[in-house]
Nucleic acid binder design. Sequence first.
DNA 1: AGCGTGATCTTT
DNA 2: AAGATCACGCTG
Length: 196
Amino acid sequence: MERLEKQFYQQPTLELAEKLLGKIFVRILPGNIHLKGRIVETEAYLGQQDQASHAWRGRTQRNQIMFQAPGTLYVYFTYGCHYLLNIVSEPENSAGAVLIRAMEPVEGIPFMQEQRGTAILTNLMSGPGKLTRALAIDCSSNGKDLFGDEFFLENAPQLPAAMILTSARVGISKSRELPWRKFMLNNPHVSKGKAT
DNA sequence: AGCGTGATCTTT
DNA sequence: AAGATCACGCTG
């Protein structure tokens, strides 16, 4: 299946969050280790109009990546122990990103099991902090993009609308009413986070 | 249901 | 300089 090109990322954040479902996230590590996961859960974050976004007050040192070109990776560290992975959206100098919240393991599963310290497939990448661990992603990947040899997305057929569900975003206190979380129906790898 | 753990940001 | 917050995960 072909790789997704820059054009794919040039759509409004909310649409991108939905179109990313089903696509295959690929990381190739030195030693020709291929890690692949199917994206099953995402959340949209915007700029000034979104109080839950890191960028809602404007540019800072941490969030500057969110203002870069679509298709850039925004990785940050939180709660003292987790890295979270986002794909930047919106044109350059305009903030936006899609948080990747869960994936279904596809390739490189032994590596992921080693990283996560468990063999249970539905526990490898069923949460935003878990999947970065499974893929060995940390801040050194912040600012890289999806157009090189290390990170890219593989295309997949668009999901039927009936398989895509929507809810409030998880784990935030502001703007909780916005239905900006997208996830796949009945997929056991979707996170158990409570979308109150 | 509670808490670890540390960067980031706001307020003094 | 100090304190609050945080796009989480694990234990119990």
